[in-house]
Design a protein around this nucleic acid. Structure first.
Lengths: 155, 155
DNA sequence: ATTGAATAGGATGTCAATGTCCACTTGGAC
DNA sequence: GTCCAAGTGGACATTGACATCCTATTCAAT
């Protein structure tokens, strides 16, 4: 339902939020997020164009969040890489359905609206601070991420 | 967010529900739903394998719903062609996240759950009977669907 | 100025979703 | 039994998402 790229983008931003406000290099990000290194640069560029992160070239450079984790929502991230496509007009192109969607598409759009709202209400800070046994990305100091990878079933 | 195939499948089922319990040929379905005729047969086959429709070969044959519109939900249709993929395990494969998703993925899965529930609660009969000016598919007698097609913007 | 760290981005490969085509099978009507 | 209507399904084309690779560009430190 959500694309792989959105999943990657969220991981990247969670990583950055966990280290804010320090800049992180793509190598560092790739390690903890397990996003393919070469593809990560594309994801980061999307996030930059979407106004979510700032990136700095040269030694000592890296990627940083533009907003603080308290102000940055999941929706901001999703919209930066792949905006949620609401249903604004009849997909069949029926003129008679003009402004008002038919009941079918109205329901589908309503579902999208709920998802959008849920994402808009959740900040990265909330995701990070939630009391739980599972820390997002699990990159807490002392934890070796690599060794905790388990066998995954083919899907 | 929802695939083209899901959109097509829903149109097909709405058309069938509007004509239940009579069988409809793929040619008839293709006309009102504006699903590419050749691809429609694939969609119908998915619906058949998913237990949503029955199809009958030979002259006088066609496609019919197995359940009545009152019993058939949007979720039934969606699951037949492309089941909603809930997030059951940590996409990073982190063993420590085992049964419990981290807050990030828990939120994403929650959004999926809401969509699933909304779809499970909506029957085709509801979609068809809802008082509105826009009849789904707009295939009411006397309305020429083709002439109501409007110019669509490229997306 | 030179060098090395680090992102930017174009070219290209791969694969699944979408879409098309056509030969085959099935079943009803005569 | 013949014929035609209608779905079945395999082979193939197209497209965009995902991924990789390599070179160019930028910046800081020296």
């Amino acid at each position: 339902m959500f694309s792989q790229t959105v999943e990657y983008a969220l991981r990247v931003v969670v990583h950055l939020a966990g280290h804010a406000p320090e800049a992180q290099t793509t190598d560092q990000i790739a390690k903890t997020t397990r996003v393919p290194r070469a593809y990560l640069s594309k994801v980061v560029q999307s996030l930059r164009r979407g106004g979510v992160v700032r990136s700095q070239r040269g030694s000592g450079g890296g990627v940083t969040l533009i907003k603080s984790p308290e102000e940055l929502t999941i929706l901001d991230v999703v919209n930066a890489v792949e905006p949620i496509q609401r249903i604004n007009e009849c997909p069949l192109g029926l003129a008679s359905h003009g402004v008002h969607l038919c009941p079918l598409h109205a329901r589908l759009d309503k579902a999208l609206e709920h998802v959008e709202q849920a994402f808009a209400k959740t900040t990265l800070a909330e995701v990070l601070s939630e009391p739980t046994t599972s820390i997002p990305l699990c990159d807490t100091p002392g934890t070796d991420v690599i060794s905790t990878i388990v066998e995954r079933k083919e899907e």
